[in-house]
Design a binder for these strands. Sequence first.
DNA 1: GGTATTATCTTGACGATGTCAAGATTAGCG
DNA 2: CGCTAATCTTGACATCGTCAAGATAATACC
Lengths: 212, 212
Amino acid sequence: MASGTYHHGDLKNALIRAGIEILSRDGVQGLSLRKTARIAGVSHAAPYAHFADKQALIAAISTEGHNLIHARVTGVLEAHPADPLRQLVEVAWAYVQFGLEEPAHFRVTFSGAVEKEHEYPALVEMTGRNFGMVRDLVKRCQAAGILAAGEADLITLTVWGLVHGFVSLLQEGQVSHTLLDRHTQRELLILVLDQVTLPHLDPQDFPEAPAG
Amino acid sequence: MASGTYHHGDLKNALIRAGIEILSRDGVQGLSLRKTARIAGVSHAAPYAHFADKQALIAAISTEGHNLIHARVTGVLEAHPADPLRQLVEVAWAYVQFGLEEPAHFRVTFSGAVEKEHEYPALVEMTGRNFGMVRDLVKRCQAAGILAAGEADLITLTVWGLVHGFVSLLQEGQVSHTLLDRHTQRELLILVLDQVTLPHLDPQDFPEAPAG
DNA sequence: GGTATTATCTTGACGATGTCAAGATTAGCG
DNA sequence: CGCTAATCTTGACATCGTCAAGATAATACC
């Protein structure tokens, strides 16, 4: 912005980061192309050199959200090798944490803010990759007797839907005080997961800070 | 505009209905105060006599969504008295149907389009009433050995989250073709519900058209 | 290395939107 | 009937998404 940098150099990424910053501060309502341009220090029409329209920016922000989840999940999987139960709990928790720490970014990423997703190959690629990771995890859990046998896609749908719905209800404050007073959000997640796992899950077996 | 009706007479409801109509045709993106005013045949600032701002209109539309669900659920409950399992399946199906028939209205209603919900008492009232109905149903299911015993609020959270997440994934097209080719959406719902019910659910026991 | 092409960015404009202020019209109540 | 408050209109403003024209810089090609 200061010296003679007519060309920004990395505008595309700067706009995405600016968008995420706006989502974090002002929520979905506050997100505008012009604001991202202002934050990046360029003129109001500069974004059109990198994004066809606002939807394209949102798609890129959504893709970045999938990237973040991918990174978190990958880290969690590697932190607990050969322990599918632990992986299941921690992957679900990573998903919930993202939803609680960055509600607006989470909503844009996972709640259909992008109207025609198939128009954005990078987005399709990342959603597919993430779904595949979860499905593979579900298969390992089935093999270990942690989840019921049956079509892996169906069990994946069930578990994903359960966790996704849990986050939605938490975000909207639709979870009763009776529950939130008695349990932490992490404990609640485990109690909810317990409803679909074959072995009984005790929240005490999954303390907040990883023991490893 | 035609005759001497300077006062509309029922503008508030007309605006809500116009808003729902827009949601049905153009989706959430297309919803604007000025458009609702145009459809209702009043000037662009007329809505401000009934709604403080756009959020207030959205809150009213959300409240109306809860009313629709309430009516559907009440109807389903009365259609299958003394049959909690059937009630569980049909209530869940009513929820899914609303989500599939009116995706935009459903999203506005159940996916946190209203930022500060506590500012709208009528909305809080209706969400509480709907949650209460589901929780009572869950209690009846627990008593009948259909759902696991335990805190009713927790089981309600689980079931609601499961169904809500199922609708979200369906709406976003995140459900694999493998699944959708083999089962109808109603069958899928029952297979998903089967993951949390104590007795095994067979989709064939719950045909699409109510036998009664 | 010099020039042509292309990508990137700016400026300016347009229509649409949310919102407010001021005024007109009418309903309802005394 | 007259007053007050509710309802609606008109006009204005800032902001937004988007496009067109032009300026600037990077890159490719000779």
